[in-house]
Design a binder for these strands. Structure first.
Lengths: 65, 65
DNA sequence: ATAAAAATATCCCGATGCGGGATATAGGTG
DNA sequence: CACCTATATCCCGCATCGGGATATTTTTAT
């Protein structure tokens, strides 16, 4: 999950991201640390939010889209 | 999940796909009917297997890659 | 340097939902 | 019809998810 990288590039906090995605700050933290994995619909919401492909988000490719 | 479509285009059964992916036939069935969702690592394995993007697999884009 | 504030990680816990084995139902094929 | 293959469903144990609350770390301001 390239989540932290993406979030930082936007210059926002876990809390702001969480609110924007209708979830919790601790959930974002866990995604970033890899302690938990989001479901597919969440994955799509995140990819939409950062305008990147899911493949990029999960580190399957190097090109954002 | 464009799983059924992809599997059929390969002309293989749920059982064969399941064996190839080291999982169970009923699990594949559930993915196809949408009753259950795979975790990310499984998603990657499936996309690898069919050589398509995850975005395509989950129906987020129309181009396979 | 330190106090306050913001950001992030961790703890606990209930509940959701995953995957497996087994079984039922459907779809051919001879 | 009897048989075989393919797919869906049932039951259930267990893993893991997400939330609230809290601890820890990092930043900011004075």
């Amino acid at each position: 999950m390239r989540l932290r990288e993406l979030r930082k590039s936007k210059g926002i906090s876990q809390l702001k991201l969480a609110l924007d995605l209708n979830t919790n700050q601790n959930t974002i933290s866990r995604y970033e640390t890899g302690e938990r994995e989001p479901c597919i619909s969440e994955l799509i919401r995140i990819a939409d939010y950062f305008d990147v492909s899911i493949d990029y988000l999960v580190g399957r490719t190097d090109s954002p889209r």
